[in-house]
Nucleic acid binder design. Sequence first.
RNA 1: GGCCCCGUGGCGGAACUGGUAGACGCAACGGACUUAAAAUCCGUAGCUACGAAAAGGGCGUGCCGGUUCGACUCCGGCCGGGGCCACCA
Length: 848
Amino acid sequence: MARYNARDSEARWQAEWERRDVFAARNGSARPKCYVLEMFPYPSGRIHMGHVRNYTMGDVIARFRRAQGFNVLHPMGWDAFGLPAENAARDQGVNPREWTYANIAAMRGQLKSMGLALDWSREFATCDASYIKHQQKLFLDFYREGLVYRAEANVNWDPVDRTVLANEQVIEGRGWRSGAPVERRKLAQWFFRITAFADDLLEALDRLERWPEKVRLMQKNWIGRSEGLRFSFALSNGQSVEVFSTRPDTLFGASFVALSPDHPLTEELAKDNPALADFVARCRRLGTAEETIETAEKRGYNTGLTAAHPFAPAWQLPVFVANFVLMAYGTGAIFGCPAHDQRDLEFARKYGLPVLPVVVPEGVEAADFAIGEEAWLGPGRLANSRFLDGLDVEGAKREVANRLEASGCGVRTVNYRLRDWLVSRQRYWGCPIPMVHCSVCGIVPLRESDLPLLLPEDARFDVAGNPLDHHPAWKHVVCPVCGNPARRDTDTLDTFVDSSWYFARFCDTQADQPVNRDAADYWLPVDQYIGGIEHAILHLLYSRFFVRGLRKLGYVGIDEPFAGLFTQGMLCHETYRAPDGQWLPPEDVERRDGVAVRKGTNVPVTIGPSEKMSKSKKNVIAPETIIDVFGADTIRWFMLSDTPPERDIEWTERGAEGCWRFVQRVYRLVTEAKGIDPAETSAAGCARDATLELRRATHRAIRAVTDDLEALRFNRAVAQIYTLTNALEAAGAASGSARREALETLARLINPMMPHLAETCWAALGRDTLLAEEPWPAADPDLLRSDSITIAVQVNGKRRGEMEVPMEADDEFVRSRALALDSVVRALDGKPPRRIIVVRGRIVNVVA
RNA sequence: GGCCCCGUGGCGGAACUGGUAGACGCAACGGACUUAAAAUCCGUAGCUACGAAAAGGGCGUGCCGGUUCGACUCCGGCCGGGGCCACCA
């Protein structure tokens, strides 16, 4: 018998879908919409298994929703700016634009070979001139709205990629791409005022019910809201210093005030204090050169100044500059209460400062309470605190805040950990910032009619630093306002800006405005967004910010960009090492007589644990080789089987072969069934029981697969389809019409997951429509019910038997039947039942 | 250090709001077909130093305890694995 030829079949159906343009999304439709989006790829040149998993899941949802009658928008584009293009330019002498578009062409072909139900007419790349134009327009709009500003600040400098980075892009003190320890530099840069929405970004998280709890929590922690009090200390030199504290209740336990090394007052004092200047310099070196702050010792420099306690001016506290006080959080200055803060305690011990407990745990006498190595952070009653004595922590916070607010030296404040988003990048391959610096007018935005401002094609990449900065013809211009000499801003925008609004552009990629409001009102928000957890903060937070900006400007009316978010797990594979420790790719390893050896040799290979696929460990599998051998449907089926989609999945050769066998099995079932007569209902040899059973299995499968796909439980949907397949194979005695119904249903149910195979089966069953345009099947409720049910019988909570009872049986009937069971009689051993619990349709428990 | 998540057969994993633990798949084993292999088909399968091989028991969701007629599911405490943030006042 002929086997299924995936290669021919897949090419044929892909061509057919394209010819009939079945996946185009229609703007202005009256049908309910569904916007399904996967995080768009960076055009590295070839797709990897992670892409395959991501786009397969999105495709299943898109096809499922389409079948359910939704007008589905499922687009694809390219996150095309970024450093790799520039590196390729430097290393291989290629043009970044050409390199990028060539990669896009290659990847487009690979994605098309997966048979994705995409509307390719909406494709764009973020490096397209039109996208640059609209993004620059948005930048100017945000600037006018006060959401973009330029400021000098201490910024994170990546010495390898030679650019600044946003806080979100520094992981454990290192650049997120280069891995190099970041340095601190004071530079004037462009910022997006993301903190303007800090409160809303935080609060709205609670309403994102279809987001993973984990991502919401990560964003919550990143935004880091804390309520406290901001108040001032008068200094002995006549100045004052403002501090922020979430524990103003501990004010009477204060034993010092500490300033950040970067605090303006510190800088002022350091001007004529070389010892302090030296201390500050050492702090800065420590902060950047050493990656582990954990081991860093608390260090301070006593300025000799003192600060007056707000409630007792005669009480003077020493003022230190301390290495652990961050300028970027709060006011850059603190008061230290060693008894109730671990850092302050370590500092106090080192410099011999008093440690006075002012919060005493319940049930402990104040006189008996001493602080050892651990600060007391728990609740308790105030002591040693004058008018606060006896209050609880919350009461004392209130009292201190009330008094300091009344006296005008303090104010209740909400402080956020979140800082504004630094978007300047000293790199070439990005969206140019549409600003010039005029010697007369200062900062001047470009005129909208001058947009887009495109990158020069003839930049040089063989010199260190920013190619735009080294391009005199591009850099030096005249001011659009006064005509005097000016220079362009030679920085480009962080590529995360590009991905912060692309989903809105997909609604109408031809719009002459950045976003077509009507189209956005129809399509947005994205109903289901799918991507990796690595964007839990970066991209997903920036996009949420951007939508708030767009809304303020009237471009969109939505509150949030992504109503549903799904974060998929990563792809893993076994790792292999040669005796010399070198990593080996899977294709160089074979198993012979149960041991792994290097292919074609007798060199033994050590098999390591399954780890995330990575180039460095060589445990990557190229999707195209799998598609070549088994076809797209097999790889898609694998991606959906067994492992829940949010978890890491292990790619195995055997698993892939198992999927391939299933493809063949379905094909065989359908082709062997050719000629079954749909009219035949009760022919000789067709058992009525078998027929009913198969029909029930069919409709149960419809119900179950539908529910599982709705809930994105792809692995369970796959299991349900196996169950139906097993039932079909066992249903030789069922009638022809029941078998046909089951086979057609099987084709419909696998269609979102294995669309080419499904179309082939559909055609083989004699249908002349496209499954891509067929509606989703509905389960017949009558066939989901059954007349009787098997329920378990327990004695004292232990299962002792089961019995078949009519669906409608009353409790009394069930009880007597249970007691009559042999196994129950035996287990009771003559003891009378004390109690019998009957749970309808589930279980009987006899308690003796 | 803080916050969070997860521990179920040889493996991936099912089990709806507390109600028959192990669906479905992979691997394995026995058998059929075949000169042979592949492919395919039929069948077995949590463990068990209980029992005669049967019937029937016993033990089983990391460990200890609790709540309940009944716990993979709820509560408390341990142990183990993973993630995020990391001097955030």
